[in-house]
């Protein structure tokens, strides 16, 4: 599709770990445990007509399957590329985005991991510039990759740093 040309990168995208899908699916499961609880309560309340409960349950199941599948695609859509002067990050299926961050504009680089991420051995690298709208987070890196990437970015940032 022609529209995809706008979101390609000549150097090729580095994908993120598929363990990110696992992490996000665990979170999804945790949310849907609560949803399932709600559906069970709905089934137990006698005043609610059976067809209402059935519709809600079906909607829950369908949305769960859809989100499960979507997570896989979303994670595959993540990619980053280190070019000579800037970092490119892309993601998204329905709403696609591509961010170009010149190394000289980075103010700080965060490396962070939540409890589920740590169990699975993945980490997020987040870039900050002076603009709050810069949305350059790369999730699903292995800790070694993340630290190496952070150090490379920090070094390049220092070489090319200018004021605000």
């Amino acid at each position: 599709m022609a529209a995809d040309i706008a979101f390609t990168c000549a150097e090729g995208w580095t994908p993120v770990s598929s363990r990110l899908s696992t992490a996000r699916r665990i979170t999804l499961l945790l949310v849907y445990v609560l949803v399932a609880g709600g559906v069970v309560i709905l089934l137990l309340v006698p005043e609610v007509p059976a067809w209402v409960s059935a519709v809600v349950a079906a909607a829950a199941v369908i949305s769960f399957v859809w989100l499960w599948w979507l997570i896989g695609r979303r994670v595959r859509s993540f990619g980053y590329a280190e070019r000579d002067d800037d970092l490119l990050v892309t993601s998204g299926i329905l709403f696609r985005r591509l961010v170009i961050v010149p190394y000289g504009r980075m103010q700080l680089v965060d490396v962070k991991a939540g409890p589920i991420d740590r169990r699975l051995g993945i980490t997020t690298v987040q870039l900050h510039t002076a603009a709050a709208t810069t949305d350059a987070a790369i999730p699903g890196l292995t800790p070694q990759d993340a630290v190496a990437l952070r150090d490379r970015l920090a070094r390049r940032g220092e070489q090319r740093s200018t004021g605000l």
Binding site: F7, R97, L98
Partner: peptide
């Protein structure tokens, strides 16, 4: 003064 550049595309 450009901090970063983004390209976005909705459905």
């Amino acid at each position: 003064r450009t901090q970063s550049v983004r390209v976005t595309q909705g459905p």
